[in-house]
Every structure is written in structure tokens, then in C-alpha cells.
């Protein structure tokens, strides 16, 4: 059902964990549908220098979270924001059709973390 690359990220997920002094945190999904992703980012200048995730969910949910951390690290927040769920799925050599909808939330989690970072940055410069 899953590609080898999905299984690789599922069995050896990259960047699992939390960042205590994160610059942005994004959380998407809900327990009702069975997939929740939480992403922490560290931003230096406007480049994402560190990223960690925790996910409650199926194989696809865990693999997409893992792979997006690799895709986003080293990118500027503006670049990282452009990553789509479709690109995440392609990076994993495809996802089963039923998983495209509910479990492929990683791009949204990243976008939420970046939005949180922007809000915090704006609040900091205002104060």
C-alpha cells in the first residue's frame, strides 16, 4: 500500500521531538479524524534552521510530517510556505488516494508554524 519511501520515513522518522524555545509552533488536524500534527520551527534571519514534529496518526501522517521537516530545513520562511501537500506526497513517491485528504496535513502544519512565527515576530518588534 505504501511506497518504500513512506515506509522509510515511517520507520525512521526524521526530526521527531519538540523545540523548547521555538520561534513558531503549528498544530493542525483533530482527534476526530485521527490525525494531529504539531510542528516546531526555529528561524534565524528568515531561514528555518531547525524543525521538529510530533504526530498522532497513521503511517501517512507520520511519514508526511517527517519528510516535510527535511524539505523545509534550510529554506527561507517564504520558500517553505510555498510547499504544498501535493509536493509532500510527490516527495514520498506518492500516497494512496484515501490518504491524500485526511492524513496529508504536513504542509498545513508548516504553514501554521510559519504564521505563528510571523505573529510572534511582529509582536516582538512592536514591543
Amino acid at each position: 500500500m505504501y511506497s518504500d519511501k513512506v515506509m522509510d520515513h515511517f520507520t525512521n522518522p526524521r526530526n521527531v521531538g519538540e523545540i523548547a524555545d521555538a520561534d513558531g509552533i503549528g498544530e493542525v488536524g483533530n482527534a476526530r479524524c485521527g490525525d494531529i500534527m504539531k510542528l516546531w520551527i526555529k528561524v534565524d534571519g528568515d531561514v528555518i534552521t531547525d524543525i521538529k514534529f510530533k504526530t498522532f496518526g497513521c503511517g501517512a501522517a507520520i511519514a508526511t510530517s517527517s519528510v516535510i521537516t527535511e524539505m523545509a530545513i534550510g529554506k527561507s520562511v517564504t520558500e517553505a510556505e510555498q510547499i504544498t501537500n501535493q509536493q509532500v506526497a510527490e516527495e514520498l513517491h506518492g500516497l494512496p488516494a484515501v490518504k491524500m485528504h485526511c492524513s496529508n496535513l504536513a504542509a498545513e502544519a508548516l504553514a501554521a508554524a510559519i504564521e505563528d512565527y510571523r505573529k510572534k515576530a511582529a509582536a516582538d518588534s512592536a514591543s
Binding site: Y2, M7, F10, T11, C33, G34, D35, F56, G57, C58, G59, A60, A61, I62, V98, K99, C102, S103
Partner: peptide, 28 residues
């Protein structure tokens, strides 16, 4: 934790089981 990810891990260890999670039923 979620059922399908448990099943995948069990399968990697050669154990066949099932779950009532949405992700295994194919519904939401």
C-alpha cells in the same frame, strides 16, 4: 496513539492484527 501506525509496526515484526481506526477502515 493511532491504530494504523500500530498495525504497520506490528506487521514489520511479522504480526498480523487489525484496528478500528478510521485510517484502516477507509472512512473518516
Amino acid at each position: 496513539i493511532e491504530g494504523e501506525s500500530m498495525l504497520l509496526n506490528l506487521d514489520l515484526r511479522g504480526i498480523a492484527a487489525s484496528s478500528g481506526s478510521a485510517c484502516t477502515s477507509g472512512s473518516l
